[in-house]
């Protein structure tokens, strides 16, 4: 009922206004069927089917669309062919695959930029590094929408605690250095069917290297972290089938390849790279 009242207010009606009785009762009849009333948040897929969404839920849906269809809804600030959901599997809802239910952990100090980061800055850095794009402003609709989506997914998590399966699993030390030569063999055997022998991706599978992939500043450009992700989530359908050492080797092979530069390091070169990439 509370929701309904808010909805009606948003529509400009006042429930107490007797002059609007007919319209108001019609409105409430129509809205009863669509107002979100559950205490437990609905799955985003259920929100997608609704015709009417209030301010907050429309932002959540927008955030979901940015995460799953980045090339369409987040195109303004992205510079490659990746989607958020290429790494944040199942639209950020899969444990051990960088799940997005982490709103309760921010603000948080990160060594990456030596600053205390709010969730906004964290999202913006994803655009710069993993999506090799432009840093959006803190209050851009895209950042606000993704932040709304992240907090929506974080429902039920303990504030301040790491949710189970946060990030990617840290692989135990295998005792051997990563071996890219073995990595190449495994890549050809296990990965190239989807990601392509040249690593440029195929339909449904993202590019792993080349100028359309993440840049040198991305989290995935870290061999050990990428190895954890590969071991826990790849190949799709037969996860955790690689040994720890194989995952590390593949990760080393992938991260040996050419990819866009780290925007923090090669300043002028990076700028030239992005401008020339645009003109083509």
């Amino acid at each position: 009922m509370n929701n309904l009242y808010i909805l009606l207010n948003a529509l400009g009606y006042r429930l107490i206004n007797p002059g609007l009785s007919l319209t108001a009762s019609l409105t409430s009849l129509c809205l009863l069927s669509i107002a979100p009333v559950a205490a437990e948040p609905l799955a985003v897929e259920a929100l997608l089917k609704r015709g009417y969404l209030d301010d907050y839920h429309s932002n959540v849906v927008f955030g979901y669309r940015i995460v799953t269809e980045t090339e369409k809804y987040g195109a303004r600030y992205t510079g490659n062919r990746l989607r958020c959901s290429n790494c944040h599997l199942n639209a950020g809802r899969q444990p051990d695959a960088l799940p997005l239910n982490v709103a309760g952990m921010y603000p948080k100090w990160r060594s990456k930029n030596g600053r205390r980061n709010g969730i906004g800055l964290r999202i913006r850095e994803c655009f710069v590094y993993s999506l090799d794009g432009i840093m959006p402003p803190e209050d851009s609709p895209e950042v606000l929408a993704v932040a709304a989506y992240i907090s929506y997914l974080s429902h039920g998590e303990v504030i301040g605690n790491a949710p189970p399966g946060r990030g990617v699993p840290t692989l135990p030390d295998t005792g051997y250095d990563p071996n890219p030569a073995n990595g190449k063999a495994i890549y050809v055997a296990r990965c190239s069917a989807c990601h392509g022998e040249d690593g440029y991706g195929k339909a449904g599978a993202p590019p792993l290297w080349g100028m359309d992939s993440f840049n040198g500043g991305a989290g995935m450009a870290d061999v050990h972290r990428a190895a954890g992700f590969i071991w826990a989530n790849m190949p799709l359908g037969s996860e955790r089938s690689l040994t720890h050492q194989d995952a590390l080797d593949v990760s080393a092979y992938i991260n040996m390849q050419i990819r866009p530069g780290d925007p923090r390091k090669s300043k002028l070169l990076k700028l030239f790279e992005s401008i020339s990439g645009l003109v083509e």
Binding site: K72, A75, R76, Y77, T78, G79, E125, V128, G133, I134, M135, P136, P137, P263, R264, K267, L268, K270, L271, I275
Partner: peptide, 22 residues
């Protein structure tokens, strides 16, 4: 803008860019 971003990077300057227009 290009000179400033070349010297200090867009990430550090936080210069707001127009972005790609689909």
């Amino acid at each position: 803008g290009l000179i400033l971003m070349g010297l200090f990077t867009q990430v550090n300057t936080e210069i707001e860019l127009l972005g790609h227009i689909p």
